[in-house]
Amino acid sequence: MSDKIVKGLNITKEFNGVPVVKNIDFWVKKNQFLTILGPSGCGKTTTLRMIAGFETPTSGQLFFEGKEITNVPPYMRQINTVFQKYALFPHMNIYENIAFGLRIKKTSEKDVATKVAKMLELVNLSGFEKRSVNSLSGGQQQRIAIARALVNEPKVLLLDEPLGALDLKLRKEMQIELKNMQKELGITFVYVTHDQEEALTMSDKIIIMNQGEIQQIGSPTDIYNEPENAFVADFIGESNIFTGTMLEDFRVKFCDREFVCVDKGFERNEMVDVVVRPEDVRLVPKSEGLLTGVVKSVVFKGVHYEMLVTENDREWMVHSTTMEREGTEVGLLMTPDDIHIMCKEG
């Protein structure tokens, strides 16, 4: 119990009567890197803003170290935020930006100087004290925003899509840096993103949200390998999703054919979603496949080829290191444990 630093109970948030977050429960453990992942408009940012204190839940309770903070204003929470667009104060130089929180706490000028210097070193921007905000690149501004938040020694750091505005290469670098920082400093991170790859590489735990509801909570491996529903499967990596019928335990019918699978415990003839990951489908000569189709398009993706195969009127996405020509008739093959069965949504 005590290691749950932030906890939300039955949290609902409505804007003008429209629910954006619907009765969710969640918790963040101390020193955890938690990511809230979901498409835009899923309520992830609103959830983060409630933890920060910028929004008050319409109903439900928020706890911080066991104490209720539902109605505590943001400036009285030991939580700091790194904003999506950095929100650095343009009329202050870098030093004053980082010192902002310390000055409110009436820190002595000597301590301010030491702490700011330490922070700048942490984010590899020593010597930038006198620079103006506008003279910095996006990546540098991002680091300053992180330094400005961390200098207050928050117990929880909230990050709202902090890498969204950076280019791909910089984003990859920052992902690693952020993760290292979190480990070194031992601070709890709550990270919001819509980038599933980012979530999978950085997080200890992921909360997947859609339309204001939590779809799944779990470790990156759990979520990737055992998505709880078709939404999660589709959102985490690309997937082929088909509607099927569970004939009996270990036997499912989809794409007009019966397959053997490893799932059980469904009702007889229950409608289910069947998920097959593109990398789990093998292209074999026509006669050896469980299904047959025609290669419709081929795109080279660097490490693999992405092919679309038309099977009857359905489309399959297949990832493979070997290429088949467009128009080739092929067989599709998958093993029973490549076939994931999940309950229909709703």
Partner: peptide
């Protein structure tokens, strides 16, 4: 004004008036 200025300040411990 860059968005979220007020929130950023409050997040860092500033009262609304400050």
């Amino acid at each position: 004004m860059p968005s979220e200025m007020l929130e950023a300040a409050m997040d860092l411990g500033a009262t609304p008036w400050y």
